[in-house]
């Protein structure tokens, strides 16, 4: 439909306003990450929207290099939290995607596990806080507290609903003719699944895995409860920096925030096409 000129002006004005609101918080953190300590909490007339003397000192600081301005010593550097975030999110994704994909295929093709759709929606519905007491007790019993593999296991379970529902809708959409042709050729059903269906689903699998990874990477609450020192993740580590005696380490925390924020934003843009499907449990497709 052709729109009028005033409408176009209004549209661009509204979108630009929305863009400003969207970007200011992000840009403020980016700017803070590159500010030297003197500009961190400058207020009033001294408040700078962009660093006057951009520096990498904040990044060097969180990786353990002491700088002249910062006399604080870190208990441990950001290296291990980054490793913890990566390992737990990656292996959590592996668990969720393996169990979820297999189960989705089982339900989509053979009608097995009819209870799973509702059970998994319920799993998603519960606030993690409301099931954490037994989980903390079980994890302590299994010696999984404060380990990245313990986090990976709970992440795998927490994001299983998304992996399952996403893959189920992808399988439901896939025409069965090719699989049926392979069956006629004498392939076993398992072979059809591993050699024919899965390779055809490479792109949807990758999108679903990225989606699940973003969710795992974004966690804060579970890591806060299940890790204490050795394997804290980036968000937990970032939050813990504030309790040091020199007050807020604005720049250092912003640098960590930036490190945490970049991967999911890039991945999210890469899988934009499937976001609606993922977020609505496949109820909507784009």
């Amino acid at each position: 439909m052709k729109r009028s000129v005033p409408f176009e002006i209004f549209r661009y004005a509204a979108i630009l306003a929305a863009m400003a609101v969207t970007l200011v918080p992000i840009l403020w953190m980016v700017s803070m990450a590159f500010k030297p300590i003197g500009e961190w909490s400058a207020t009033g007339a001294d408040l700078t929207w962009w660093p006057r003397q951009p520096t990498l000192a904040n990044f060097q600081f969180v990786f353990g290099h002491s700088t002249n301005d910062l006399i604080v010593a870190l208990d441990h550097t950001a290296v291990k939290p980054i490793l913890s975030s990566l390992l737990s999110a990656v292996f959590g994704t592996v668990i969720a995607m393996s169990a979820g994909t297999a189960a989705a295929y089982g339900l989509s093709r053979f009608g097995s596990g009819q209870n799973l759709p509702l059970a998994l929606i319920q799993l998603r519905l519960f606030p993690p806080m409301a099931v954490m007491i037994p989980v903390m007790i079980m994890w302590a019993f299994l010696n999984l507290n404060d380990t990245w593999w313990g986090l990976a296991l709970i992440y795998g379970i927490v994001t299983l609903p998304f992996a399952f529902w996403l893959m189920k809708t992808f399988f439901d959409d896939l025409p069965r003719e090719i699989e049926e042709a392979a069956l006629v050729e004498g392939c076993s059903r398992l072979r059809v699944f591993t050699r024919i269906t899965l390779p055809m689903m490479r792109a949807p699998l990758a999108s679903a895995a990225l989606f699940v990874f973003i969710l795992n990477w974004s966690d804060y609450l579970i890591a806060l409860l299940l890790t204490t020192r050795e394997w804290v993740t980036i968000p937990v580590y970032m939050a813990s920096l504030s309790s040091s005696m020199t007050g807020q380490l604005y720049g250092a925390k912003a640098a960590l925030g930036l490190i945490a924020a970049v991967p999911p934003v890039i991945m999210g843009i890469a899988i934009q096409r499937h976001l609606v499907r993922g977020l609505t449990f496949g109820a909507l497709k784009q």
Binding site: T22, M29, I214, M238, P264, V265, L275
Partner: peptide, 12 residues
């Protein structure tokens, strides 16, 4: 760009 906020880690 408008979708970016929902991909930022909530803690961040």
């Amino acid at each position: 760009i408008l979708l970016m906020p929902m991909m930022v880690v909530p803690a961040v």
